[in-house]
């Protein structure tokens, strides 16, 4: 969990390289099942907007007959 606490201060402490390194460490730690993490998220709770949730629900319903295997546009390196 120390890595998560460190991330919370990243705007002051970390360069993008350090951020990536820390995020990679977290990937390897299997923190996503941790009750400590869930407790921390509940403590800091920031609500997702209703509009955002509605957009996803609309996406779900409106793409029921759509082939979702089409790859993302990022593959085309537009950025």
């Amino acid at each position: 969990m120390n890595e998560i606490y460190s991330l919370l201060q990243h705007d002051v402490l970390f360069s993008p390289d350090e951020m990536l390194s820390l995020l990679d460490t977290i990937s390897d730690l299997n923190l996503f099942e941790s009750s400590d993490l869930y407790q921390l998220l509940d403590e800091f709770k920031i609500k997702a907007s209703g509009e955002l949730v509605e957009r996803i629900q609309t996406f779900n319903r409106s793409t029921l007959n759509v082939d979702l295997r089409i790859p993302d546009i990022r593959e085309l390196m537009l950025n």
């Binding site: 991330l7 919370l8 990243h10 705007d11 995020l23 993490l37 869930y38 998220l41 509940d42 800091f44 709770k45 920031i46 609500k47 997702a48 907007s49 955002l52 949730v53 957009r55 996803i56 629900q57 996406f59």
Partner: peptide
């Protein structure tokens, strides 16, 4: 499922990227 977990997932994203617009894009 979305309603059950949305706040924890949004909070996780926001705590790291610290930008609401970006958090919404990543959440979506």
């Amino acid at each position: 499922l979305i309603n059950r977990h949305k706040d924890r997932i949004y909070t996780y994203i926001y705590l790291i990227v610290k930008n609401h617009q970006l958090s919404e894009d990543i959440f979506q």
